[in-house]
């Protein structure tokens, strides 16, 4: 993967760069999907691509809970029938104990599904890092374009710089 990116000192400058890239994408031969961004904190209040993101994570968590709860029910009911304990004519599979285990397993299912769906949808772990610069940890905001056309490289660098980039770099660095 190749990229050209600028490092911006604050969210407002990054937002400006983002707008310029979106506006000049058709001229420079890329679209919004090629624009990359990295920041050391979420920037929800700025128009940087955070907004309007949809994810089925809450539904997946609910589904995970359902699967967990169902597993819990079968764990308790089937195995208690397979290994019946003397209960003095009381039900072998009793409502309340079953309900408690089902409840805990439901929650466990939801928790594990949330964790797994985070890893999958955020593409983690991602050991071979994508476009990134350690300056992001210093608070800089990285805005760039992935796999830009060589023909428009200089124009892209100019656009990023004009938007207020403190530095413009190539990835991987040459």
């Amino acid at each position: 993967m190749r990229a050209v990116y600028g490092l911006y000192p604050d969210p407002a400058a990054a937002e400006r760069a983002m707008k310029r890239l979106r506006a000049s994408g058709s001229t420079l031969g890329f679209d919004a999907r090629h624009i990359c961004l990295a920041a050391s904190e979420p920037l929800d209040e700025f128009d940087l691509g955070w907004k309007d993101q949809k994810t089925p994570m809450p539904w997946l968590a609910a589904l995970g809970g359902l699967i967990g709860g169902t597993s819990g029910y079968f764990l308790v009911s089937l195995t208690q029938r397979a290994y019946p304990l003397p209960t003095g004519n009381m039900p072998i599979v009793a409502l309340w104990p079953t309900g408690i285990v089902v409840y805990e397993m439901t929650m466990l299912g939801a928790i594990l599904t949330t964790f797994i769906s985070l890893l999958v949808s955020a593409r983690l772990p991602h050991w071979s890092k994508g476009v990134y610069d350690p300056a992001v940890s210093e608070g800089k905001i990285l805005v760039g374009v992935v796999n830009p056309s060589q023909a428009t490289h200089d124009e892209l660098v100019k656009t990023l710089r004009e938007a207020g980039a403190e530095e413009v770099k190539d990835f991987p660095s040459s």
Binding site: A38, P42, T55, L118, L124, H126, W127, K129, V131, V136
Partner: peptide
Amino acid sequence: LGWTGTPKQWHRLE
């Protein structure tokens, strides 16, 4: 885990 702080990563984390 190779975190880079992309909008998608932040959004999913939150």
